[in-house]
Design a protein around this nucleic acid. Structure first.
Lengths: 142, 142
DNA sequence: TCTAAAGTTGACTAATTTACTCAGGATACT
DNA sequence: AGTATCCTGAGTAAATTAGTCAACTTTAGA
């Protein structure tokens, strides 16, 4: 799992979508205005979100995007990995080509980083869009 | 906390140091040969490790580096943040200059990322060099 | 049926970050 | 004295990320 601002923007956009869709599709233009993300960039993000069937699109005027599932069904982990094309973790044992070749310290840190990777994954696995929205409510109330 | 291969190399180097220092300082050249990291790169890393007093250096021939503490006292978190010059997390509330200015979704994802940051920190906070070495032993035994 | 609003797609560029190298010096052991 | 080592700052090249664009298709509504 990669952590870049791309993923952060994707979560922002999806949160905006979740908050503002009510029966009508939400256009990228709206999201762009509300969240201050360029339309061009949003296009890129939503292309991938759509490929991963996290959203559903309607073309034409009055078109836009809606969530494919209810917010509590959408895990942040799927949003983030959708836009961040999965990185393959380095295999140490099998492909001796450019692997760790008996350099134990290297192998160890690899497995350490893999462990971390699942640790991070767990974090986003446990959070849904619904959680994010709930937090936003609290935030506004303060 | 930033996660790059720089941090991974630093952990590797420190693990190598922990494993091979016995009364004598370990030279960068040795580490370079064993771990396959260029000396020039190691110099850069050890400069910072030294500034953060994680290691202690001896100049001159037969010089090199030793750990400042015993491996069980050295947390991986300190190694990683030593080489990765701390990133300041973005403050949303106070400095209205380039903050989130009422864009809640943005603020929310910020706090989300901060939460994650502490989550990651915790992971490395809990691991010591000693833990890494112990794992290496197990690994060799398999 | 025309037009405007929207998504679709692939390619492209600019900016930033990261990884890595280098040169020239200072220091201390033998 | 000579050599092995650390010390330091500067610099470069590669990779990644962020962001832009143009030309298209589709659909709703006037």
């Amino acid at each position: 799992m990669k952590l870049t601002s791309k993923g952060r923007y994707a979560v922002m956009a999806m949160a905006d979508l979740a908050k503002n869709e009510d029966s009508r599709p939400v256009s990228l233009k709206e999201i762009s205005l509300r969240q201050g993300i360029s339309i061009f960039y949003l296009e890129q993000l939503f292309l991938k979100l759509k490929l991963n069937s996290l959203v559903h699109s309607t073309r034409g005027s009055r078109g836009g995007y809606v969530l494919s599932n209810s917010p509590d069904q959408i895990k942040l982990s799927s949003i983030i990995s959708a836009v961040n094309e999965e990185v393959e973790t380095i295999k140490c044992n099998k492909n001796s080509k450019k692997g760790c070749n008996g350099k134990f310290a290297k192998c160890i840190t690899h497995s350490l980083w893999n462990e971390l990777s699942t640790h991070i994954n767990l974090f986003f696995e446990r959070k849904s869009l619904e959680d994010v929205l709930r937090k936003e409510k609290n935030f506004q109330g303060e």
